[in-house]
Amino acid sequence: MKYAYYPGCSLHSTAKGFDMSVKDVCKKLDIELWEVPDWACCGASSAHSFGHLLGLAVPAKTLVPAEKEGLDIVAPCAACWQRLVWVNHEVNSNPKMKEKINKAIGAELNGTSNVLSVMEAIAAAGEEKISQAVKKPLKGLKVAAYYGCYYVKPPKIAHVDDPERPHMIDDLMAAVGAEPVDWPYKTECCGASLNFVDFNTTLAMSKKVVDIAVKSGADIIVTACPICQMNLDMLQAKMNKKFGTNFNIPVCYFTQLMAVAMGSSPADVGMNKNYVPFESTLAKSG
C-alpha cells in the first residue's frame, strides 16, 4: 500500500520520535510513504481563529499533490489530521467554499484523497500482517491508550473512532502483545496548546489524565498526538512540584511501542527524546 505522507511541523521538531516510529512501523508493514513535496504548515492552532476560510485555505494546498498522484494521505499529527479532514469535508459538501478555497490557493482541489490518521493506515495493514511483524511481544506491559480530542471530536467531522470509548489504539497494542487497560479518560483533553496561553489550567488538565492513567494500573501511556505527548510527558515534573504527586510514568507514541515490539531499538525510534525514563518499564515486559 502507498500513501502520501504529511509529517507537519511538529514531526520535524518536538515530535521527531513520532516521525521516526511511524516510518519504521510502516516500513515493516510494507506501507510506502511518499512525502508531499514542499509541504507547508497546516495553520493549527491559530489560522482558523482568524477566519473560517483562512483556516481551510492554509492546509488545503498540502492536499493538491496527493490528489494529483491519486493517493490517500496520512497525517500523523492529530491537529494536522483534523485540519485536513475539515478541508475535505468543506470541499465535498460546500461548492461555494470549495470555489473560494481553490481561488485562495490558486489550484484545483476536488477532495478526492482520503485523509487518514496513522492508526487507520496501520490498522488497514491487517491483524495478520501486524502479528507476523512482531518479534518481541510486549508481554505483561499495561498500556493506557490515550486518544485525546482531535481524532474523535467533533464526531461529525472527526470520526476515527467512538468519541467516548475509542478502541483502535488499544487493539493495535493488543496486537503487539501488550495489555491495554480500560480507563475512563481516553478522550479527556490534555489542554493542548493552551499550555502556551494559560499554563496553570493546562497543568491541572494534564494532571487529571496522568492521575487516572496511573490509578487505572497503567505502566505506560501511549498517544497519537504530538501535543498530548508533550503535555503528559514534559509536564510531569511540574505536576509533581505543584500537586505533590509522585508521577513517573513514561509517555510515548503508540508507534514507538509498536516499532519496539517489531524489533527496533527504542533509540532508533526516538524514545530517548521523551522526558520520563522508559527503560525500567520496558524491561518489565517479555
Binding site: 507547508a40 504548515c41 477566519g51 476560510l53 485555505a57 481561488k103 485562495a104 490557493i105
Partner: peptide, 21 residues
Amino acid sequence: PPHMKNSSQIREIAENVEKIE
C-alpha cells in the same frame, strides 16, 4: 529555521483570502 523551497506560500494564501473576503 525550517527550510523549504517556497516559504512564502502561506503569506500568499493569506493575502488571497484577504482579497476574497
